[in-house]
Computed example of a mutant assay.
Amino acid sequence: MLIISPSITLPESELVERFLRADGPGGQHVNRTESAVELRFDVIHSPSLPDEVRERLLARRDRRLTSEGVLVIQARRFRDQARNRDDVRERLIEIIRSVLIPPKKRLATKPTRASKERRLVGKQQRGKTKQNRSRKPDLE
């Protein structure tokens, strides 16, 4: 059981782990052992997630989220399977925790009078600079 927060826990039955051979250096060892771990978590059909957390998780623009709403995380950082398993579970916990707190709504503000004046003065200066470029210099 993964404990995300005091109110959210994920049972092992919702997590699907697959073990694969890790790529990269490692000599003969890398060809024999399946140390890489792929964890799949079905976000859409999970009864453990509250609806608002599920919506925020699905709204994330994350390439690890498939079109069917399955979150796929791979871990191949370590050479042994147990450490990669722990790593992939920690990353899942971090992803879910990152959407627990709803984003703050933006408060609409108006520009100050001084900032409007600075903008207009800057526009006038740029306009004068461009006008001076097109004028012929006086040869007197």
Rank of each mutant, 00 (worst) to 15 (best):
Asp87Trp: 05
Ile4Pro: 08
Leu100Val: 03
Leu65Cys: 05
Ser67Gln: 03
Lys105Ser: 15
Ser48Ala: 04
Val53Ile: 11
Leu10Thr: 04
Gln124Ala: 15
Leu10Lys: 05
Leu49Ile: 07
Gly122Arg: 15
Arg97Trp: 12
Arg85Asp: 07
Leu65His: 03
Arg18Thr: 07
Gln131Asn: 14
Lys105Ile: 12
Arg79Glu: 10
Asn132Arg: 14
Asn132Leu: 14
Ser115Tyr: 01
Glu34Gln: 11
Gln28Val: 12
Lys123Tyr: 03
Arg32Asp: 02
Arg21Val: 09
Glu14Gly: 07
Thr109Ser: 10
Ser98Arg: 02
Pro25Leu: 03
Pro6Trp: 01
Ser7Arg: 06
Ile101Thr: 15
Ile95Arg: 06
Arg118Phe: 04
Gly127Pro: 05
Leu20Thr: 15
Val30Pro: 12
Asp62Phe: 04
Arg85Thr: 13
Asp23Lys: 13
Lys116Arg: 15
Ala22Glu: 07
Arg56Ser: 04
Pro50Gln: 08
Ile3Gln: 09
Asp42Ile: 01
Arg61Asp: 15
Asn31Phe: 03
Gly127Met: 11
Arg113Gln: 05
Gly27Lys: 11
Arg77Tyr: 12
Val70Trp: 01
Val121Glu: 10
Ile93Glu: 03
Leu57Ala: 07
Val121Asn: 05
Ser13Glu: 12
Gln81Phe: 05
Gln124Pro: 02
Arg133Val: 14
Val88Gln: 07
Ser67Val: 01
Ser35Val: 08
Thr33Trp: 09
Arg135Phe: 02
Arg133Ile: 13
Arg135Cys: 08
Gly24Asn: 11
Ala108Arg: 13
Val72Cys: 06
Ala114Leu: 13
Pro6Ile: 07
Leu139Ile: 14
Pro11Asn: 03
Val37Ile: 01
Asp86Met: 09
Pro11Arg: 02
Val37Ser: 06
Ser35Asn: 13
Arg135Gly: 07
Arg118Pro: 07
Leu10Arg: 10
Pro111His: 08
Glu34Lys: 15
Glu90Tyr: 05
Ile4Val: 02
Ile93Gly: 01
Glu38Met: 07
Leu2Cys: 05
Val121Phe: 11
Arg135Leu: 11
Glu68Val: 05
Gln131Glu: 13
Phe19Asp: 10
Arg106Phe: 12
Leu107Gln: 13
Leu39Trp: 00
Pro6Arg: 07
Asp138Gln: 14
Thr66Ala: 13
Thr129Glu: 15
Ser134Gly: 09
Val30Arg: 15
Phe78Lys: 09
Val53Asp: 06
Gly24Ala: 06
Pro47Gly: 04
Gly127Leu: 04
Arg91Val: 08
Arg18Gln: 13
Pro50Ser: 11
Leu107Thr: 15
Thr33Cys: 12
Pro47Lys: 01
Phe19Met: 08
Thr112Val: 07
Ser46Cys: 08
Leu10His: 06
Leu65Ile: 10
Glu52Cys: 00
Leu20Glu: 15
Leu139Tyr: 15
Ser115Val: 04
Leu20Gly: 09
Ala114Gln: 14
Leu39Lys: 01
Val121Ile: 14
Ile3Met: 10
Thr33Lys: 14
Pro102Met: 11
Ile4Arg: 01
Leu39Ile: 01
Leu15Thr: 03
Asp23Cys: 15
Gln28Ile: 10
Thr66Lys: 00
Arg135Lys: 13
Lys123Gly: 10
Glu14Cys: 00
